[in-house]
Deep mutational scan, measured.
Amino acid sequence: TTQFTVHSPEQAEQWKEYAKQKGLEVHVQKKNGTWHVTIH
C-alpha cells in the first residue's frame, strides 16, 4: 500500500487515472484542504 498527500484535486485525479491504468485500487480522502491518496 502506498499512501501520500497531494494538495490539489487535479493531482488526486492524475493518481486515480494512473491507478486505473495499472489495475490498482485507489482511495482518495479529502481532509483539511489536502487529499490523502492511498493506492492498494
Rank of each mutant, 00 (worst) to 15 (best):
V6M: 03
L24G: 02
Q11W: 05
G23I: 02
H27V: 11
A19H: 02
A12E: 02
Q29M: 11
Q3M: 11
T5F: 12
H40R: 11
V37H: 01
W15I: 08
Q29D: 08
G23Y: 03
Q29H: 11
I39T: 01
V26H: 03
W35T: 01
E13W: 09
W35L: 04
L24F: 11
V6P: 02
T2E: 07
T38S: 06
H27W: 09
W15A: 04
T34G: 10
K22G: 04
E17N: 09
E17K: 10
T5Y: 13
N32M: 05
Q21T: 09
V26S: 04
H36W: 15
K20E: 07
H27L: 09
K30D: 07
V28C: 00
T2D: 06
V26Y: 10
E17S: 09
K16F: 09
K31H: 11
T34C: 13
E13Y: 08
Q29A: 10
K30P: 06
G33A: 04
Y18D: 02
K22F: 13
T5P: 04
T38W: 09
H40Y: 15
H27A: 06
Q11R: 07
V37E: 00
H36I: 15
L24T: 02
N32L: 06
Q11I: 12
S8V: 04
A19P: 00
A12S: 03
H36Y: 15
A12L: 13
V37G: 01
G23E: 04
H40P: 03
W15D: 00
E10M: 07
Y18E: 02
T5C: 15
Q14K: 13
E10K: 07
V37Q: 00
K30N: 12
N32V: 03
V6Y: 03
E10F: 08
W35I: 04
W15N: 00
K30F: 15
K30H: 14
F4S: 02
A19G: 13
S8H: 05
T5S: 07
L24W: 14
T38Q: 05
W35P: 00
F4E: 02
K31M: 13
T1Q: 09
I39Y: 02
Q14Y: 15
G33R: 04
Q21F: 09
V28T: 03
W35M: 02
V26G: 02
T38Y: 08
Y18F: 09
V26D: 00
W15T: 01
